[in-house]
Simulated scan of single mutants.
Amino acid sequence: MKKLSLFSLTLACVCGFGFGFGSCSDNAAPESETQSTSVSTGKIAAAPWVKQFEDTFNVGSNLSQWTKEQRSDYNSWYCDYNSSVPTTQWRDGKQCLEIKTTKLSTYKYQSGFISSNYQYKPENNTEYMLSANIKLIAMDGGNYKSFTETYGAWPAFWSVQGNGWPTKGEIDIMEGYSFAPNASRFASNLFYGTAVGTNLLGNTAERNYPGNFDVNGNNGWHLYESFWKMKDNVVTITIKIDNVTVATYTNSSAPNLNLNNFGAHSIIFNVNVGSKDSSFIDPNKINLFSTVMMWVDDVTVYKRPI
């Protein structure tokens, strides 16, 4: 998840990137009006892929494979993470992880952040595939709104080694930014540095999704994937959306990048609100209606020899 200032980087280092998320089941919110037509993009993981990790977020799950965050976001003055926010819900006829934002006051929002206890990185001549089916949506009272109608939401699906950030790297599979009435923006990104708290890449590794990416397509459900491999000690990271490649990273993709130094990563889902940079996200324009939500139908990690 993008780090916008040296202050936030240093704070991340001092606080140690505690990770988070909670459980329980709350069925108060209605399901999507179009649930009968929703079909998540299928995953292809035939042999020689072997499953290493999975969570289907069954309703009633205590999310024991995850750690819940209770803190302010490092990149925003306006978002606090509460460990009670993440829940498991029936949404669009699916059992999902739900991360929901709530407006607490004019300039303060509550949201959620969850990190897997499971960690992974490729050994030489292996490849890992991290996949999640995700939907982003908003609500205005009892009425559903498109994510694209909101302003100031910042959801993310990423992996990171938090200890000593960013010396063991960070892989942002999806970062979404809502800027209504202008177009929303989605991107992948990498972060890396040789000293704790100092990102050497800036945003030189950021890759915007193609202009034809429609977050509302397929009833809002999309398959987000990261392929992380090491072949003969050469590391490559590929990001795909709905089975279409949107970014491929090697050490030559950005100055100072060294993918060989990336460490074992945890998997993270969170929804940030606002930013510490008012020229990036204007706090006076934030509009999430009643709530913005991230629904995660499932997340898996597969491994294969190459």
Rank of each mutant, 00 (worst) to 15 (best):
F7V: 10
T198S: 10
N125I: 01
K51T: 02
F186Q: 08
N58W: 00
V299H: 02
T88V: 11
G22M: 07
T126D: 01
G176E: 08
K240E: 10
N203L: 09
H265W: 01
V296N: 03
K2Y: 12
S252E: 13
A187Q: 11
S178W: 08
D26R: 10
S23L: 01
K135P: 03
G217C: 06
S105I: 02
A264C: 01
S131K: 01
N233M: 10
A45V: 12
A28R: 14
W221F: 12
M129L: 15
Y151K: 06
S184A: 14
D298W: 14
L130F: 08
M1V: 11
G211W: 04
P155T: 06
K121W: 02
S40K: 09
V246W: 03
F269D: 06
L201W: 04
G112I: 07
N270I: 04
Y151C: 09
G152W: 03
G164P: 01
E149P: 00
Q119G: 02
F157M: 05
A138Q: 10
S278F: 12
N212E: 12
W66L: 08
A247K: 02
F262Y: 15
T238D: 07
R304H: 02
D298I: 00
S184Q: 07
I99V: 15
T148S: 15
F280P: 00
V215S: 13
S178M: 07
F191C: 11
G142V: 09
F186C: 03
D214S: 11
W165G: 02
A47T: 13
L6T: 10
N261F: 01
M1K: 10
T194C: 00
Q89R: 15
C24T: 14
P255E: 09
N270Y: 04
L257K: 04
N251E: 06
E127A: 15
S275D: 15
L97I: 05
K168T: 01
T67S: 14
S146P: 00
S188E: 04
E54I: 10
K2M: 07
A247D: 08
G217S: 15
A45P: 00
K2F: 11
Y249N: 06
G22S: 11
L130E: 07
Y224T: 01
A156D: 04
G220Y: 07
Y177H: 13
S61K: 07
F186T: 01
N133L: 02
S146V: 01
S178K: 06
G162C: 05
M1W: 08
G202M: 08
G152D: 05
T126S: 13
E206L: 15
F21T: 11
K68G: 15
